[in-house]
């Protein structure tokens, strides 16, 4: 119960913090839309790399967020 309360508080705090972040307008996102700013522009290369590292290292899987946006249009 206490653990759930802590997670709920953390989620609410994160939501409050995110809503307070600066709002970047669509016309200000020129740089964010550039391919070199993307998290997964070359997802094929990223997939091969993660698979190779997964066969060598003991912490395979759980490599991160999938499908996160870039914030650009």
């Amino acid at each position: 119960m206490k653990k759930k309360a802590v997670w709920l508080l953390a989620a609410v705090s994160l939501g409050a913090a995110l809503s307070g972040c600066a709002r970047v307008k669509p016309w200000e996102r020129e740089y964010l839309a550039d391919p070199i700013m993307q998290f997964d522009y070359n997802k094929e290369e990223k997939s091969v790399k993660e698979h190779f590292l997964g066969t060598r290292e003991g912490s395979t899987g759980s490599f991160g967020v999938s499908g996160g946006g870039c914030g650009c249009n």
Binding site: F39, V65, G68, G71
Partner: peptide, 12 residues
């Protein structure tokens, strides 16, 4: 689960 947040026009 994850969150992606634009911090500024140059940072995400």
């Amino acid at each position: 689960v994850g969150v992606t947040q634009v911090i500024s026009p140059e940072t995400v």
